[in-house]
């Protein structure tokens, strides 16, 4: 049980990274980005491209970084994948959502557009890589370490926790110590007053997509390091991402962090009774329960 809990935290930190990006986008752009899961997929596959295709052909060395399962290529690929998906997210905004915004389209139309975008991203991945499951470093043995209380955890998973925590701290510093970060929070708080103060909304939006996309990519790559990647992985994360964001109070970054951890743990604990494929359904049931009991989430405003 304890081991399930520990792995739930690992999974939860991946979900949290995705949910934070999702909730950021919701807070500033006020619509449910159904493409967020597939941004995770995109991140994972861009990393795969670097690690398995581009770097080998460029002759980039790949000394294995024991005790982890990956080598230097992954270390280089990680930030590149984040940057690439930040770019993809900005591109989607410029070509799709911005046009709908300018027409004054409703949140539902934007969500529908995002749904379409999620399929487009997934189809591109399927066209370029096919439907198989892939590993970043196939055939590498991944022994577990033993922690006190008999809990086994892989070094990779400890790293995932570390990287996730690092990114969250970075995000916090960004949102609270930089002018653009504060402008983003201000825009999420009161978009009209932000305009009145001279904050250029479109720049904030671009920054928001970059941040959300980068975090989603990070989540996707980390998941791929831990498990495997496949084109449907992002869609499977959609329900946990939304459940986490709603649990924490939609729009609330720290709520999404906590929400992610909670959903991750819930999902893992459920595997004691249910098949692992039911995990998205567990997240879904959890989400429905929150919506029934306390729809504004843990940290949402009092209604």
């Amino acid at each position: 049980m304890l081991e399930l809990f520990v792995y739930g935290i690992v999974l939860g930190s991946i979900i949290a990274l995705g949910a934070i990006g999702l909730t950021l986008v919701y807070g500033i752009l006020r619509f449910a980005n159904f493409a967020h899961g597939d941004l995770m997929t995109a991140g994972a596959y861009v990393a795969l491209f670097f690690v398995a295709s581009l770097f080998p052909s460029l002759g980039v060395p790949d000394a294995r970084l024991a005790p982890f399962s990956f080598g230097w290529r992954m270390v280089a690929a990680f930030p590149l994948a984040m940057a690439a998906v930040a770019g993809v997210a900005i591109l989607l905004d410029k070509t799709l959502y911005r046009k709908l915004r300018q027409k004054g389209s409703s949140a539902v139309m934007l969500a529908m557009s995002a749904l379409g975008a999620s399929f487009i991203v997934r189809m591109v991945v399927l066209i370029l890589w096919g439907a198989d499951y892939r590993s970043f470093y196939p055939g590498v043995l991944r022994p577990a370490m033993e922690l006190p209380l008999g809990v086994k955890i892989r070094p990779d998973q400890v790293l995932i926790l570390g990287v996730a925590a690092f990114l969250v701290v970075l995000l916090h510093l960004f949102l609270h110590r930089t002018k653009m970060g504060k402008a983003m929070r201000a825009t999420a708080d009161n978009p009209e007053l932000a305009r009145v103060s001279g904050i250029r909304t479109e720049r904030v939006i671009t920054c928001c997509w970059a941040t959300g996309g980068a975090l989603a990519a990070a989540a996707g790559v980390l998941y791929g390091i831990d498990v495997q990647i496949h084109p449907g992985m992002g869609w499977n994360f959609l329900l946990p991402l939304f459940a986490a964001a709603i649990l924490g109070g939609i729009g609330n970054v720290y709520g999404a962090l906590i929400g992610g951890l909670v959903i991750g743990v819930l999902q893992q604990l459920s595997t004691a009774f249910l098949l692992p494929t039911y995990k998205p359904a567990v997240a879904f049931v959890g989400m429905i329960l929150i919506l029934l009991i306390r729809p504004q989430g843990i940290f949402g405003p009092r209604e």
Binding site: K182, A183, R185, A186, D189, N190, E192, L193, A194
Partner: peptide, 21 residues
């Protein structure tokens, strides 16, 4: 503005900083 004329989730100092944006 008459209503919603502050950023409620930001601190006093941050509100002023936004004023100086």
């Amino acid at each position: 503005p008459q209503v919603q004329n502050v950023f409620t989730s930001l601190t006093v100092q941050e509100n002023l900083e936004m004023g100086a944006f």
